[in-house]
Nucleic acid binder design. Structure first.
Lengths: 156, 156
DNA sequence: TGCAAATAGGATTACAATAGTCCTATTTAG
DNA sequence: CTAAATAGGACTATTGTAATCCTATTTGCA
């Protein structure tokens, strides 16, 4: 529960590899061997990244993949959403609100979960491929700033 | 992917019902009928909440469940974690670090995902049952404050 | 021009996790 | 004593994920 799929995991590792090894086009075989994972399965993930415009492919011998834009402009949300439908923490949530909850008007879950959903989306959208390539140390935590403010320790 | 289980969904709805109907002890049957869900399945969720000290049970006729502490002191994380193991966005993450990633030292995923994990945990821990009972409108979004600060619109 | 190495993608299988059911035991107020 | 409640083990059904298999297509190059 609340776990990213292997396809997403491999997709992240693959684009990280592409971003970190700036020797241009890279084949699926090379990535699969480097990560020691199934070539076939990785290919599916790469094809989805390609269909979503995150990477570009070149067919034929000497073919392979490259990032279609700088790592700073690829978000974690982009990579995750490319592999499946938009994530939803509960069923009665969609971005376009086309889902009618079985609990309808009485649903006490939808509104608060929509809020949680938005905050998670916010994290995933604001984290770039460049961030997760460079970070060995934890990135800034918005909630720490929040606590810092509320505890009145601000030196501003 | 990245979805809370039905057991968690029902657990949240159940404790919301308990928090909002302050008539003391409530039976699983009453909650199941109110939510129109399987009594048996809900019972499992309630038993896990009980084992984790979130609700208290009274057996026998006239038995049922009550919250074991005020709704302000029960977090969304408490409710979620009661139903299964601590959530982990990727396999190579645990709180106690007893998992050795197959990628070991070369793992480019662990550190950035640990950060994402911490930020999600932070959201779930800081959201109380009282919050999700009262909120019809979205709660405060830490990232909005972050943006607000960084865009230099502060009036402090 | 034909081969080898690459992507594209449909179809299928294997496995794991979730969701839900069934049944029995135990507790307890009246 | 009995009815109504919780406790919980065992099982089944369903779904989603992970992985594999196979074939088609593209393309650089000897």
């Amino acid at each position: 529960m609340f776990k990213l799929s292997k396809k997403v995991e491999y997709a992240i590792l693959a684009v990280q590899y592409m971003a970190m090894n700036s020797k241009g086009i890279v084949s699926a075989k090379e990535i699969a061997e480097h990560l020691n994972i199934s070539f076939e399965f990785l290919s599916k993930a790469l094809q989805k990244l390609m269909k979503n415009g995150i990477i570009e492919s070149k067919q034929g011998i000497k073919g392979g993949y490259v990032l279609s834009r700088p790592a700073e402009l690829i978000s974690l949300a982009d990579i995750i959403n490319a592999q499946s439908n938009e994530i939803r923490v509960v069923d009665c949530l969609t971005d376009d609100s086309d889902c009618v909850c079985v609990r309808e008007e009485d649903c006490t879950l939808r509104s608060p979960m929509q809020n949680i959903q938005q905050r998670i989306n916010s994290i995933l959208k604001s984290t770039s491929l460049a961030d997760i390539c460079s970070s060995k140390k934890p990135l800034i935590d918005a909630n720490e700033i929040l606590n810092y403010k509320f505890e009145g320790n601000s030196d501003e």
